[in-house]
Design a protein around this nucleic acid. Structure first.
Lengths: 228, 228
DNA sequence: TAAAAAAGTTAGCTATGACTAACAAACCAA
DNA sequence: TTGGTTTGTTAGTCATAGCTAACTTTTTTA
């Protein structure tokens, strides 16, 4: 593996596939990630994914056997981490300096992460004084490509009576993020699980002197650290 | 003409062609700009240009008759001005906040100008407190698309004894910009034409207590305001 | 364990935006 | 004014990256 993978040789599409695969692999590294799953995540057809995977295997960014599960090479992973670093630094910049709201940063960062310039991103990092977390609470990988994934628990996996602290939220959906802001949840919030209703899997939670009922689906996108 | 042309419908290539045509037209609005000239400027084949011009005519951004000269519609011009605004604001940001040098800003700004977000660029403008000039001295068009081209004189067009002030420099060539910095010319410099040598068209100039001999080609890329 | 379902692959099509080669129109100059 | 040069156009090719439809392999489950 080269120390500085050459980002300059990749198309926007190639970058998108590598980043997507990385994010699927990170969720649960023991479970197989397949072609169709990657296709669904990227909202393209399985045929398109198959083509691109072939191309990225030829370039030694992906490894897989025919009909087998997909994995990244060290270089493929390094490229993905660098993209995540760029994405999160831009989100932080937009949020902290350009008055973007929680739910507005993602789409623009999705474009900005493809800008090719090592200097740009390292200077942006310095300008913001090397932030550690993005606006959604996610860890920003550093310039060396080190990326420590914190052990995250989904709010949906806790039990009645548990108390936890909000660590991060999924930044994929604008509707979800708007909803998070609307009910008043913030990164610092301490949340108590009051009740889990078996009937419809809805969860009653208390935070910052507020009581809310949230759905299971909502709780799946909220990541927390258990406190009690 | 719509008040806010929809930048979101244009590809990067389409944007590049419109901006290039605008910049060719602005140099001398009375002289014809043709297909091959546009091709040469963009460093693509005349056939590619012909194709793209056809497409942009169909979208009502360009007007021209077969075998005739090219011109922009109001909407085409508005898109080009918006791109120039974005380019120059990004150059200013890179130069003033991210430690980029004069000659490094252009290539990255060339990528950043294609990011699609109205909010991004207007907030960047506000963040920098609405700068009027980019690092090369060029006027930054405002959010309404107003773009006043200042009457610029090429340093090469002055006569012996003339005194002028440096207004702006061409930002197209890295070599040129490095050379400008190296000899110590800056945007504020007051330049006196000491001598023009008929033999090889070289020009002897004095500025900031320095005397330099520059070529005609160099002087073609330096824009000034005559003082005396 | 065999049939059905799911997952993966292949072939062949489309659009974009490059390219070259060949040709046509316009312009200029002897 | 006519012939050569410059400029513009067209036809046909290529690569990227998407698509559908058809097919194959693997996995699941009855």
């Amino acid at each position: 593996m080269t120390n500085k993978p050459n980002l300059y040789n990749l198309t926007k599409s190639e970058e998108d596939y590598l980043k997507a695969l990385f994010q699927l692999l990170i969720v649960d590294s023991s479970v197989k990630v397949g072609n169709n799953q990657l296709a669904e995540y990227l909202k393209v057809s399985p045929a398109s994914t198959n083509n691109m995977v072939k191309k990225l295997k030829a370039k030694d960014y992906i490894v897989s056997e025919k009909y087998g599960k997909l994995d990244l090479t060290d270089e493929g992973r390094a490229i993905a981490v660098r993209l995540i670093r760029k994405h999160r630094l831009w989100e932080t910049f937009l949020y902290n300096y350009l008055n973007f709201s929680w739910d507005e940063v993602h789409d623009v960062a999705e474009q900005l992460e493809h800008i090719k310039s090592y200097k740009l991103i390292d200077e942006l990092d310095r300008f913001m004084d090397f932030p550690k977390r993005d606006p959604h609470g996610e860890v920003i990988p550093d310039a060396d490509g080190e990326y420590f994934v914190l052990p995250k628990t989904r709010l949906s996996s806790l039990s009645e009576g548990d108390v936890c602290q909000l660590i991060s939220v999924d930044d994929g959906s604008v509707q979800f993020l708007k909803y998070v802001s609307k009910i008043g949840l913030a990164l610092s919030s301490r949340i108590k699980i009051l009740e889990i209703r078996e009937f419809d899997n809805s969860i009653r939670i208390e935070f910052d002197n507020t009581i809310e009922t949230i759905t299971r689906k909502f709780a799946d996108h909220v990541f927390v650290k258990k406190v009690v």
